[in-house]
Design a protein around this nucleic acid. Structure first.
Lengths: 239, 239
DNA sequence: ACAAAAGTGTTTATCATACACCCATGG
DNA sequence: CCATGGGTGTATGATAAACACTTTTGT
């Protein structure tokens, strides 16, 4: 099978062979105003025209599936280096109505400040939805989304991946609200502070919030170097 | 693409359409004499004849990928209901030398007492290997195996899946040795006992070991009903 | 009696939890 | 001076870890 692509260097439309009967679908999470969000696409062509679903696409013959997922995300969001992980393959024989297609699910976490809307080939519209506002999606995309939320909840308790959803500089309260939203729990502020600070994962930026109508909070950043040094021992983000 | 299968009811050879360019590979773990083992297959035909690799096969056009994995395991081991979970898809474009094939990895845990050797279609020999004795495997099967071991180590710390590797009736020391082997740690016997018993996952069978040259240990079984009742709260098998 | 593993008891340090309280800033 | 969120202190109970000890069984 052959599909049209925009060459990333020349900008010209080129044709490339893609794999048959296998696609990639991406769940892209963002975090805004204390709420977890997901980026959805309104399909512009084919039988699902006008319906909303996860962004996805084909795998070129000569790229790995991870490369394909990164390329799709880059085409869609303009972001080259984002947190991206494979979920699993979804292979119900009836999941796609026009034939047998297995899809490989990926999920990504992005800082919304980095995001640059680029409506892709088959997307007439791309929009952030709060998780509660997501309604019926095409094919098995609700199942993929539910699975990825479940997966995110697990992952976030074992590794400090939540930081990928926050701006570069953040306060401890923002971080706590992120955990509260994802895990759907209430946390105790003093205890959360101590727990996080004891992990020594955060670099104190020696800066404070500006123009807030209360005592300004210290700003921190997540330091991946520190993380790498400590990562061997394993963390516990049970809250 | 069409492949030959043995019909599970009639026993006759039948031909069925299978998916192109997608396969399934299974990592089957067992536990024997305190050591973690994996079931490998010596390939009987094609370019990898005589070499060892993971058992795998094709996906029929009308079966889901989970069904395909269960069918393959049943053909190979004779076991219908075993612990089976998808790992992820492996999609390096060069992973298979004769063309682009993506494979979906699965891993299974079996009680070796249930296992009934059945050399399958493309297997001239099937053999249990201790993890330390596994050498070079075909294609990317070493990568799949390493990934599944890493995954097993994580899963076993969050859910009581280790029981699937033990006989129906087992002693606490056997269970402890299982954890020690999988996680590669030394555990304290009294503390392990208390920790496991406090979880209330085990049903006391009111039986004891027979013919052992030391004080006979109580036998327990893992009770999935108890597990279901308690599962909501979540467990912590960190050791 | 001894070896070997089953199984119990106890001490200690550490940690999670709960909650009272003080601090800084803008309106 | 009050509302808002930032940030600290402390008492309590639960738990993990270390290890000394007793029990049972076959040889």
């Amino acid at each position: 099978m052959v599909k049209k692509f925009i060459d990333e260097e020349s900008g010209k439309v080129i044709e490339e062979k893609v794999m048959n009967a296998i696609t990639i679908d991406c769940v892209i999470f963002g975090f805004d105003e204390g709420k977890l969000e997901v980026l959805l696409i309104e399909h512009a062509e084919g039988i699902s025209k006008g319906k909303w679903g996860l962004p996805g696409g084909w795998i070129k013959e000569d790229e790995s599936i991870d490369e394909a997922a990164n390329r799709l995300l880059r085409e869609l969001t303009g972001i080259s280096n984002l947190y991206l992980e494979q979920l699993k393959a979804f292979g119900d024989p009836k999941r796609f109505p026009l034939g047998r297609v297995i899809t490989i699910g990926y999920y990504a976490l992005i800082k919304k400040e980095d995001y640059d809307v680029k409506a892709g080939f088959t997307a007439s519209d791309a929009k952030w939805y709060k998780m509660d506002d997501v309604k019926h999606l095409i094919y098995d995309h609700n199942e993929i989304l539910n699975y990825s939320l479940k997966h995110l909840r697990n992952r976030v308790r074992q590794a400090p991946i939540g930081f990928n959803l926050l701006p570069e500089k953040f306060t401890l309260l923002q971080l706590m609200q992120l955990y509260q939203e994802i895990l759907n729990v209430e946390l105790d502020k003093p205890n959360f502070r101590r727990k996080i600070l004891k992990m020594k994962l955060l670099a104190d930026l020696k800066e404070k919030e500006q123009n807030v109508s209360h005592r300004a909070a210290k700003l921190y950043k997540f330091d991946p170097d520190i993380y790498k040094k400590l990562t061997e021992k394993g963390f516990n983000f049970e809250m």
